[in-house]
Amino acid sequence: MSDDLFKALADPTRRTILDELAEKSGQTLFEVCSRLAMKHRLGISRQGVSQHLAVLEAAGLVETRREGRYKFHDLNTAPLRRITERWPLPHPDSHPHSRPSGPEDSTS
């Protein structure tokens, strides 16, 4: 199960798909393809995107939902918790070298 997670995260295109689903959950395959092609200038076939989504789905990071005749893809970040369960984050107060916590890693 963890292997699926790390495999899914190892590919830059799949990480971009997760970024886009984080921006807006509930996308059709067409919307995911449009975002990759138009926003990120990634030349991937629809079939290729479909395969990336299947890998993300196997890792539990993407869930598909049928609504009538349409099929939507949602982001599920819950499997990421396994990473910090395995390698716990330092507690912000107890660690002298820890950086302030926030939504973005502000190293600059």
Partner: peptide, 15 residues
């Protein structure tokens, strides 16, 4: 709508 307005560069689309 199955896709809300989406701005992509100089084009905006919706479905």
């Amino acid at each position: 709508f199955t896709q809300e307005p989406l701005e992509m560069g100089d084009v905006t689309t919706a479905v």
